[in-house]
Simulated scan of single mutants.
Amino acid sequence: MHTTKHDWITTPITADIVRGALELERTAHGVLPHRLPAWARAQCADGQLAMVESQPAGVRLVFRTRATAIELDTLPTKRVYVGAPPRPDGVYDLLVDGRLTGQADVTGGNTLTIDMTTGTADSRPGPIGTLRFTDLPDGDLPDGVKNVELWLPHNETTELVALRTDAPIEPAPDLGHKVWLHHGSSISHGSDAASPSTTWPALAAALGGVDLINLGLGGSALLDPFTARTLRDTAADLISIKIGINLVNADLMRLRAFSPAVHGFLDTIREGHPNTPLLVVSPILCPMHEDTPGPSLPDFAALSAGQLKFRAAGDPAERAFGKLTLGVIREELARIVAQRAAEDPNLHYLDGRELYGEADFAELPLPDRLHPDTATHRRIGERFAERAFTATGPFADRNA
């Protein structure tokens, strides 16, 4: 017999019920999931990286229970962009036995106000909020036991303060699923997806029957050596890296630096995963940067009208001097993978335009010119699963 919904049992939030995070930092309020370890964070003082790696894309609480009610106290950090429309609160997805059963958000929390015209940010503290799910159905297991996954907002830094249920919980057993480790840009992070379990990597992982570790880092897929070492040191059965758009966005390097950096990134991953299937994915279609270099800048004319859009600020003529465009990057990635695959049969290449190309752009344009919407995330996730996880794909289970 269940306890009443007011007889809460508090369970410590520890690593055995958290998946998708590489580290849990103990804070004054509780624990903060990180997607890069402390040593890696210490090697880069960039505020954008600090913000996005602490946003728990792909991070979820996973446990088994007979509980019919769940409460979670969290301290979110809300982002406000000066001059832009208000952002919706981050969404929490509750899955019971793999089925989406509830969605909710948490009000309050800290506020990070970002002024894109000056490049400055200001933080203001706020109160802890509470998330509550009630009247949960019985599970598929004996005695009504259910597998619960509570996906944290992919785009909102979230300190976990307290977890309460009206029945005991226990860590979910290891079901032997393969672990898929993915690194990419804000598109992989989940920008403009409706909820954390509907980002394209989360959808692809569900279709592929794998456990996701999402190291999509908005604005920060920049071939950083510490990211490569993090991938090297993280246990995984399958690895993919999506490279390109952020290098153009940031106008970070030219072709002379790009090619050796890709080789070095792959070399580092291979130090820890010499034979793991490794898929290199080039950028999806982004018309404004196909042939025009970066940087990407906010479109201040659109911003003055209350719309957040971006524009390409480079000059196509600068390609002659080694400036990167998405077309240049795709051509070079295909060449590098083909060169290396002669000695590395587990290295594979996927042209990102197979996930989202010209026909897709005509049907589902990028609302801010950079990021896909919810429907496009679903299409990309389905196409990635079809190309990567099916029988002929690089992530197919050859032993099945």
Rank of each mutant, 00 (worst) to 15 (best):
Leu136Met: 03
Ala204Val: 01
Asp122His: 14
Leu131Val: 05
His183Leu: 13
Glu170Leu: 00
Pro142Glu: 05
Asp233Met: 06
Arg99Gln: 13
Val161Arg: 06
Arg124Val: 15
Arg232Asn: 10
Arg229His: 15
Ile169Gln: 00
Phe133Ser: 05
Thr130Ser: 13
Asp115Cys: 12
Lys178Arg: 15
Arg132Asp: 04
Asp174Thr: 09
Asp143Asn: 14
Ala205Trp: 08
Ser197Arg: 03
Ala104Asp: 12
Pro196Gly: 00
Trp200Lys: 11
Ala104Lys: 09
Asp166Ser: 05
Ile169Trp: 04
Asn110Gly: 15
Glu156Arg: 14
Ser197Trp: 02
Gly219Cys: 11
Gly139Ile: 11
Ile187Tyr: 06
Gly102Leu: 09
Ser123Lys: 03
Trp200Asn: 09
Ala221Asn: 14
Glu170Pro: 04
Ala206His: 04
Ala205Lys: 05
Leu215Tyr: 08
Leu212Glu: 11
Gly219Phe: 10
Ser191Pro: 00
Gly108Thr: 08
His177Arg: 15
Leu203Val: 14
Ser186Thr: 05
Asp192Asn: 13
Leu131Pro: 03
Ile114Arg: 11
Thr111Ala: 07
Ala194Pro: 06
Ala221Asp: 15
Phe133Lys: 05
Thr199Ile: 02
Glu156Ser: 14
Ile169Ser: 01
Ala167Tyr: 04
Glu170Ser: 15
Ala235Lys: 12
Thr165Lys: 01
Thr101Gln: 12
Asp233His: 02
Asp140Thr: 15
Gln103Glu: 14
Leu203Gln: 09
Asp135Lys: 04
Gly109Leu: 11
Gly176Tyr: 11
Pro137Met: 11
Thr111Phe: 00
Pro201Ala: 03
Trp151Leu: 10
Leu203His: 02
Ala236Thr: 10
Asn110Cys: 09
Gly184Tyr: 05
Ala193Gln: 13
Glu170Phe: 00
Leu212Gln: 07
Asp138Cys: 01
Gly219His: 11
Leu141Asp: 12
Gly144Asn: 04
Pro171Tyr: 08
Leu175Gln: 13
Gly126Lys: 09
Asp138Ala: 15
Ala205Arg: 05
Pro171Glu: 06
Leu212Asp: 10
Pro196Tyr: 00
Arg229Pro: 03
Lys178Ser: 07
Leu203Cys: 00
Arg164Ala: 11
Thr118Leu: 14
Ala228Gly: 10
Gly216Pro: 04
Thr227Trp: 00
Thr199Cys: 01
Leu141Glu: 12
Ile114Met: 10
His177Met: 13
Pro142Gln: 01
Arg99Val: 14
Gly139Ala: 08
Leu217Gln: 09
Thr165Phe: 01
Thr113Asn: 02
Arg232Asp: 07
Arg132Cys: 14
Lys146Met: 10
Gly126Ile: 07
Pro153Asp: 11
Glu170Cys: 02
Arg229Lys: 14
Ser197Glu: 04
